[in-house]
Simulated scan of single mutants.
Amino acid sequence: RKAVNFFSVPDGHRIWARRARKTADAIVVRHGIQVVLTSSAPYSAHLIGMYLQKKHPGLGWVADFRDPMSTHRGLVTIRRPPGWLGALRACERRILEAADRVIPNTPMNRRELMRLFGLPGGKATAIPNGYDPEMLPEPGVRRGQSGKLELFYIGGLRGDWFEGPFYEALAILKQQAPDLAGLLSVNFVGADAIIGSKAEDLCVAEDIRMHGFVGQEAVGEFYTQAEAFLLILPSHDTALGWVPQKLYAYLHCRKPVLAVVPEGQVADYVRRSESGVVVSPADSEEIAKALRDMLETFAREGRLDLTRSQQAEEFVGTLSKPHLASEMLKMFRQLVDDKTSGFPGPGSSDPICG
């Protein structure tokens, strides 16, 4: 299995995709399917779409990428055989050229696809991962306040290369404004322990409460307890189009977000939604200043309120899953209309990558 994952293009699920083609074809024939949606990961799912499109020329095919493929941030840390990345990019090109429509998961990833592969603008439509309002508390709800500024980070930890600048900022805050630092309660939800040694070395590990991995219902309670949210991304080019799922939930909850991120898609979303402050992960002093500003407001007013313009609220509404599903449905209907009216679409004679 490890050897298959190591050498396979686009991924180790390629054998599954080949076996699944027969089942998918039977479903298309039996139900008179007009549009097929393939969604990755795994990226091998798109090979099924290529196969079906070749076998049924009138079939519409939408290739949905919930994460980038050959430009995925994780590829920088994965060891692969020589030439593998080039083969992956060639496979991605064939998928993009063959599909009738392509869905990247952020506007920045859409622009990157257009730049790298020369996709026409009308072929690719960004549809973010978004948030499900039915699985989250009502915006602005607070419960169980402790008298401290409860700052919550929801999600897994990655180590000092990722969270290190925030630990440095905590140390600076404790040194420069110890009284204000005493009002801050930092909460990490989704990990049992800090990864790396920097927090211990800087004597801030004891200031962070670890809540471990919890279920969806418990996460909802943490969203209501939060006075503000923390989001961290590294200073790396591969992080520019990366939008962690937690951000969409943060924006829905209508509480301030401290976004320790590089200039990129997350920074754009936070600013467009008027939901907080963006600080570079390369500047621990500025992160400490942002924390201090939040704490001074909290000390003065006893809470942090977030007021957004109508335009910002409308933008956040466009990130809800019901809205995004309706946009995807419009795409499917338009594609069916194009196919039935004889509108020419891109095609490919190569059903398998590699």
Rank of each mutant, 00 (worst) to 15 (best):
A239N: 14
G155D: 00
K255D: 09
T71H: 01
S235M: 11
H252G: 04
S185L: 14
A299S: 11
R292M: 12
G60V: 00
C353E: 03
F166L: 00
M328A: 12
S8A: 15
V266I: 08
A267C: 04
G164Q: 04
G122V: 11
H211L: 08
A45K: 11
V243Y: 12
A98K: 02
R19P: 07
L240E: 07
I154D: 05
D293W: 10
E296P: 05
D160V: 12
V4A: 06
A288M: 09
K55F: 04
F117L: 06
I33Y: 03
P137K: 02
V186G: 04
I127K: 05
L173A: 01
V316E: 04
P346I: 09
A45V: 14
L184N: 02
W16E: 13
I33P: 10
G60F: 05
G212I: 05
A41I: 09
I195R: 15
P262G: 00
C253G: 01
I15C: 01
L231P: 01
F65Y: 15
G121N: 13
G159D: 02
G32C: 06
A191I: 09
L247A: 02
D337L: 13
E217L: 14
G215M: 00
R66A: 12
P139S: 13
R94C: 03
A41R: 13
A171H: 09
A171F: 05
V102K: 01
A20C: 07
F65E: 00
R73G: 08
M108A: 05
E217N: 14
D132I: 09
P281G: 05
R89A: 12
E150C: 09
F6I: 06
E286L: 07
H46D: 11
Y153C: 02
L231R: 00
G302R: 06
A228V: 10
S8C: 14
L335R: 01
E138L: 13
G130C: 07
Q311D: 07
G345P: 10
K2Y: 09
G121Q: 14
L180D: 01
M294R: 07
M331F: 05
A169K: 01
L251F: 02
V189D: 05
